[in-house]
Design a protein around this nucleic acid. Structure first.
Lengths: 250, 250
DNA sequence: CAAAACAACTTGTATATACAAATTTGTCAT
DNA sequence: ATGACAAATTTGTATATACAAGTTGTTTTG
């Protein structure tokens, strides 16, 4: 790690220090609760200034990866598996950010005729053609969510020809049309057997489902995302309420 | 703002700088998109070092309140449509609005000693006293949600003396103290037996749990609400995204 | 006139230094 | 032994300084 300045195209030093810690956490050579080196030790080991180490550790603490106690030391945080549902644009990025390996499997990508219930939800004529995509997203080859989408062909005529292993469905749709409005419904359920198979979960595990209805102009697209059990999902992190109350809690 | 050291019991300087900015944002004297003073101007105005100002602005940026562009300046962030997610004020009103009959049962209302895990979450000393309330809300005498709350006594000293069949806990808390921030976590789970009993559900039914952490000043209150199975909950109806993308779906 | 060069801002990063504050550990006196 | 105190270690904060790097004008130059 060069001392005075960083080379071009290299990430800044504090980021390199963060990565150095994160790599060891993600590879399980640092386990939750374990004490890591003191700032002084990291300074000596990495040949950077204490302020740079301090910034790295402080930011990792703010990000919930470490916990620090004055006079004692710095410890690997005992972390709940969390994914921010509403703040982060791409869960692929989030997985990569925490050092995981993102991959996805396209389970289905075809044109179908909309069954009456689906047609009604999408304000379509019964048995009108719709594009249907089912994609399983994985972190380190473990399925973490299954996304099931229906899209009106007029919105994205070339939808079926895309390579969604390279560009996510969201990214593609957002690139071709502006989203006018979104409606969310969240639900807890035991998924159907075919979904359980794809998510590799058993029949007793409750699963979080997020249903979205997206308006592109006056056209509607729907998606249902099933999140693998056990995880807890933060809704938008902290926010300051403009109107008090919220979420129907009494 | 004292330069060399901070007085005892005063928050650190960088926090005072953060508060100075946040106050002006919250009071709408700084509007979203507006440019704020440069670091150099804040240094001159507040009589602190640039590194202190830099830390304050950097942290506010990480918290999503500001956005910075090198060479241009620092701007008030255009807030994500988070508040739109949390629009329903009272499920009591909602039940009445759809013609149902609302009632509630106070299952527990007492002072307890906080177990260590709870104390940690509330940033309290272990076994410090906390108020604990468990209330079951019903629609036409059918339980639809169970709310479990822990409140620091300093926030609401007369909490135990209230009649929460008349005024809901939320209404009472909001009436005595302003809420600074809320954090939501949603989870799907099979609840513990005592919760299943109170909600009158069987052991195979998945249940939606909404955990809230509420900051009143720097004091924390927590609540967990368990929603009766089968229902689906709309998160704030439609909203128009200001920033495209979002919501962590791929 | 147009393009290039420059100056004047801005934020971004990195270092060295200093002291404060919390905790643990060691030592000494009783 | 035990309590009191001091020392060492650790994180927390604050400052001064320096240079890098992006943006916006202005000025110089061809």
């Amino acid at each position: 790690m060069g001392k005075p300045v960083q080379n071009i195209t290299e990430p800044p030093l504090y980021q390199q220090v963060k990565d150095y810690i994160l790599d060891r956490i993600n590879s399980n050579s640092l386990l939750p609760g374990m004490r890591i080196e003191s700032e002084a030790e990291l300074v000596a080991a990495l040949n950077v200034s204490r302020m740079t180490v301090n910034r790295a550790l402080r930011e990792l603490t703010a990000e919930g990866r470490l916990s620090r106690r004055q006079g004692q030391g710095t410890f690997v945080a005992v972390r709940k598996p969390q994914a921010a549902l509403f703040t982060i644009q791409s869960i692929a990025d989030e997985i990569r950010a925490r050092g995981g390996c993102y991959s996805c499997v396209i389970h289905l990508l075809e044109e179908e005729k909309a069954r009456p219930s689906l047609a009604a939800a999408m304000e379509l004529a019964p048995y009108a053609p719709v594009f249907h995509a089912i994609i399983i997203h994985k972190e380190d080859d473990v399925p973490i969510q299954l996304a099931c989408r229906y899209i009106r062909p007029e919105i994205a005529p070339h939808f079926l020809e895309q390579d969604f292993t390279q560009v996510t469905v969201s990214e593609y749709l957002l690139s071709i049309a502006p989203v006018a409005a979104i409606e969310h419904v969240v639900e807890a359920l035991i998924p159907e057997p075919w979904i359980r198979d794809l998510l590799e979960i058993n029949s007793a595990e409750p699963c979080l489902a997020l249903h979205r209805k997206t308006w592109v102009g006056n056209r509607i697209a729907t998606s249902s995302t099933f999140y693998s059990p056990g995880s807890r999902y933060t809704l938008g992190g902290r926010f300051t309420p403009t109107s008090p109350g919220g979420i129907g809690v009494m």
